[in-house]
């Protein structure tokens, strides 16, 4: 009997020690199963993204979506024979939508991605090393945050000789990296005070190993959640700027430039096909991103997780 108990205890210990905590994906899936909105959103989002990229790839390699054909301008779906009619330049709206959506998504991914990399690097450095380094870095971040982003972007775009996509991404990134840095730093600080880091330090593990192998994985949930949510913000910013005319150039369609048509009463009332598809797509994408992102956030915060 004693032997059995001990072996059972050993077994229990073994199991406890060998079971890893559930992975991010498992947690996420669990969360999704109980949140219908997020569940649907995820699939819709994946579908839209794949459709957009596939469609855009197929289209730009087989035809010239951007050619002006003024004779055909502003034809309704019935007249033009195409699903969504033509816009004021005579371009067919449907293929244009794919290309524009792809451009918008590309820009958002790029902006969010780059600002995240910067945020991770700077935030972890700041949080981990603390002290003077932390102070200096945070001073810089503070100063940069004080700059009125919108105004600077407008001013800089007015300067630029050429409005390339790269420049636009640069400008947007310049004003979004600060928030990421703050987030990562806060999470890093929290973690650094925890025992497991201190234990590793006492053991003498190299700093880089601590950072990469122990701390980063714990930051992942927060980072991923924020990444997804800030995608939506990037899309919103790009759309807003393009709408105002401070976005991309003439030859680069984006959801924002397509929405410009809505600024004119004639289009708003009589030519829904020039702007409504873009609007619906923007809303769908952003809604889905938000639902999914919120689910991810709940995963990252154990208190809000579905138990």
């Amino acid at each position: 009997m004693e032997q059995n108990t001990i072996s059972l205890e050993n077994k229990g210990l073994e199991m406890a020690l060998s079971t890893k905590p559930p992975s991010l994906f498992v947690l996420f899936w669990r969360e999704l199963k109980h949140d219908a909105f997020a569940f649907i959103s995820l699939f819709v989002l994946i579908f839209v993204i794949v459709a957009v990229y596939a469609g855009a790839f197929f289209l730009t390699s087989t035809r010239d979506v951007m050619s002006n054909n003024l004779i055909n301008q502003n034809q309704s779906p019935q007249d033009s024979g195409s699903l969504l009619g033509t816009d004021s330049n005579g371009r067919y709206v449907a293929p244009l939508l794919f290309v524009a959506a792809r451009n918008s998504l590309n820009i958002s991914f790029a902006v969010t991605g780059i600002s995240f990399i910067i945020g991770l690097v700077v935030g972890v450095t700041s949080g981990f090393y603390g002290g003077k380094i932390d102070n200096t870095i945070m001073r810089i971040v503070d100063t940069w945050t004080m700059i009125p982003a919108l105004m600077f972007i407008i001013a800089m775009i007015s300067i630029a000789d050429q409005r390339t996509v790269g420049l636009f991404i640069l400008f947007l990134t310049m004003f979004t990296w600060m928030a990421r840095t703050r987030l990562v730093r806060a999470a890093a600080l929290q973690n650094c005070n925890m025992d497991y880091i201190n234990a590793s330090k006492t053991l003498g593990t190299r700093n880089s190993v601590i950072i990469f192998r122990e701390m980063l994985p714990n930051l992942v949930d927060i980072v991923v959640a924020n990444f997804v949510l800030s995608l939506a913000a990037s899309i919103g910013m790009e759309t807003g700027l393009s709408l105002l005319g401070f976005g991309l150039g003439m030859e680069v369609p984006s959801l924002g430039t397509m929405l410009q048509a809505a600024l004119q009463p004639v289009n708003l009332q009589f030519r829904w096909w020039t702007w409504a598809p873009a609007l619906i797509l923007v809303v769908i994408i952003m809604l889905c991103i938000n639902f999914v992102g919120n689910a991810l956030q709940r995963v990252a915060d154990p208190k809000q997780r579905y138990q």
């Binding site: 759309t239 709408l243 809505a262 923007v282 994408i285 952003m286 639902f291």
Partner: peptide
């Protein structure tokens, strides 16, 4: 909240005007 978040401020403004 999400829908309001999803619509760019500008579009909202235009909708309000109209």
């Amino acid at each position: 909240a999400f829908v309001a978040l999803a619509m760019p401020t500008l579009v909202l403004g235009i909708v309000m005007i109209f």
